[in-house]
């Protein structure tokens, strides 16, 4: 079992709901300060977006964030260099699209993740049937390749995804792209429930989770949540690391209260 999964399981077993905030790498000059703020606010892992020019699974906010980062000269190499030696105390999970994984070859890519201290990988456009090569390269590098499951995924396939996923299973809460939503979709609970029944691997629910209430609702079935667009919207609007930290701290509190109701 990889370091990412060991870490997430330990925290879950300690009764903690898992919180994985997302940051588009190199979004600002002081982007690393956001990561520190995430940790201070109680993040259990951090997802770092390696921006791609054609983010087909992302809604307007993360598209804009990717565009801003790329315009600032962001690249896989530069972002990984920025992460090297940070020692944040929580695992880092890179998320990107397959073209960037293939660019220097999956082995070199996963090796570079390892060198930069990244423990996990999410590839938005890599379904099971195409995953062999990256799966092998990630395993060889000691990086957990987390697979995504969607509300449209039929049960036998969900089981295969849960089996082959490493680190955690990323439950995509709805049919659609990333982005803030007014309410947690009904499909979120159904999917998280199905996954938790078929695997004891941590299940993180993502896409559209924007408020502490939604997060608290999500962990009634899932082991934790991923929060991306809601953070990036704030940063694009000028929020400082402290501002984003305060937002996440409120979410952390809501998660903790949900797990241990005031007695």
């Amino acid at each position: 079992m990889g370091l990412l999964e060991i870490h997430l399981r330990q925290r879950r077993e300690a009764g903690r709901a898992l919180l994985m905030p997302y940051l588009t790498g190199a979004i600002t000059g002081d982007w690393v300060d956001y990561l520190r703020a995430f940790v201070d606010a109680g993040a259990d892992a951090i997802e770092i977006g390696l921006p791609f020019s054609d983010p087909t699974l992302d809604g307007a906010t993360i598209q804009e964030a990717s565009h801003v980062a790329l315009s600032r000269g962001a690249s896989v190499r530069a972002i990984l260099a920025g992460l090297s030696g940070l020692e944040l105390g929580v695992p880092l999970v890179a998320s990107t699209y397959q073209n960037l994984v293939l660019h220097d070859g999956p082995e070199a890519f996963c090796g570079a993740l390892r060198t930069a201290g990244v423990d996990g990988l999410i590839v938005a456009d890599l379904p099971l049937e195409e995953a062999d090569e990256v799966e092998q390269a990630a395993a060889d590098a000691g990086v957990d390749l987390a697979l995504l499951a969607s509300p449209a995924t039929p049960p036998p396939r969900l089981a295969a995804i849960a089996r082959r996923s490493r680190g955690f299973v990323y439950a995509v809460s709805l049919m659609g792209t990333t982005g803030e939503r007014a309410a947690l979709s009904a499909s979120a609970t159904t999917l998280a429930g199905q996954l938790c029944e078929s695997t004891d691997r941590p299940v993180l629910l993502g896409f559209g989770i924007s408020t502490p209430d939604q997060a608290a609702q999500a962990i009634r079935t899932a082991d934790g949540v991923v929060v991306g667009a809601a953070i990036m919207r704030r940063i694009l609007d000028g929020a400082s690391p402290a501002d984003v930290g305060a937002y996440l701290a409120a979410m952390r509190q809501a998660l903790d209260q949900e797990r241990e109701p005031a007695s």
Partner: peptide, 20 residues
Amino acid sequence: SAGHFGRFGGRFMPEALIPA
């Protein structure tokens, strides 16, 4: 059967679209 022409082709798509 998986849509490959030699090393090309395939189906690099989000999981949500795979059933479709």
